[in-house]
Amino acid sequence: MSNVERDPVETVFPPGDPSAPSGDQSAGLEVLEPRDVPLGGPRAMTVRRTLPQRQRSLVGAWCFADHYGPDDVATTGGMDVPPHPHCGLQTVSWLFTGEIEHRDSLGSHTVVRPGAVNLMTGGLGIAHSEVSTPSTTVLHGAQLWVALPDAHRNAPKGFQHHEPTPIRVEGATLSVFLGTLAGQTSPVDTFTPLLGAEVTLDPGASVALSLDEAYEHGVLADSPGLTVNGTDTPRSAMAYLPTATPTLTLTNTTLDPARALILGGPPFEEEIVMWWNFVGRSHEDIVQAREDWMAHSERFGEVDGYAGEVTHLPAPVIPVVRIRPRGNASRGRRNP
């Protein structure tokens, strides 16, 4: 998915950002509230964005999180994002309901379906389109981005598809699409250690999961009535847990199943600049990426088969001011 905000913000994420306050798991937990972002068009589909924001920029290498739906496609028009570029990042698509047709400049053509992860590596540059299928009546899912480390930010284009087998843990069903959790490991390759998992709790159930204490974690609530380590986490909000948190305890306080996504990774210790659909290391990186995209450079390639009117989504104009560092609004000491 493209970041289609009309005036996207240029943001620098300082090394080691986010920094988490020290203390026990309850003291270090933060609840990140989402903000609504329309995807454009006369019947704009609205997504709820928790990353990035001023309070916290990244969770591990996860640098972007949009939660959307359930949307009635007859009302919103569904998803129709024309060919657009990415560089310096990987996109991770995860659906709860509906289907999205994916095409990219690597030649990949697949349908994203619930319970299957599609990971696309932008690296030096890639382009893709995303369109909800004609059979989709309700669209519901999450679009996530991962920042690539400097050593791999110019990696070749890539695409991976994986359908994890759900497993039962006490009180919940778990699907691990990246990394390892509860004894289940995904075969999908990433350039930094990551965790990505869907968990669905039974009505009124509670589940305790052992965490890698070298990771920080974010729990994105897809349902109301969810508590994370004893803290209420409203639907579409993300609960942030700092490193040195040994256990994640999720509780469903409702009489219906409750679902969440668990994201994690070691704190990302590199300075990055993110603007529109690009991740770089400097203002000049972003300017060059935009120029290459607008010039139809081979760097990004072309997407074949997209049937919409706009076959090359124009990039917004970069502001004349240079990027200035923007850290977390409330900074604390790092965990030891």
Rank of each mutant, 00 (worst) to 15 (best):
V176H: 08
Y68G: 14
N3G: 10
S236C: 08
T311G: 08
P8Y: 05
D202L: 12
D24Q: 10
I272Q: 09
Q55W: 06
D71W: 13
L32A: 09
S132Q: 04
T249V: 15
V12N: 01
T136C: 05
G123R: 00
A239N: 07
I323A: 15
N277K: 06
G122Q: 03
L209M: 10
V320P: 00
G60D: 11
L144A: 04
I262C: 02
T185Y: 00
S93C: 02
V47G: 02
P336Y: 06
E269M: 11
T46M: 07
P316N: 11
F13C: 07
A289N: 13
G264N: 09
T251C: 03
L124F: 05
L241Y: 09
A65V: 15
H86L: 10
A65L: 15
P242R: 11
P234I: 07
S135T: 15
M120G: 01
A244F: 05
E298N: 14
P18D: 11
P82I: 12
E33L: 12
P164W: 02
G327S: 14
H162Y: 15
S22A: 14
D292V: 04
G69N: 07
V131F: 02
G125R: 03
L241E: 06
P18C: 09
E302Q: 13
H217I: 08
R322S: 12
E302F: 06
D212E: 14
T190R: 00
V73Y: 01
P85F: 10
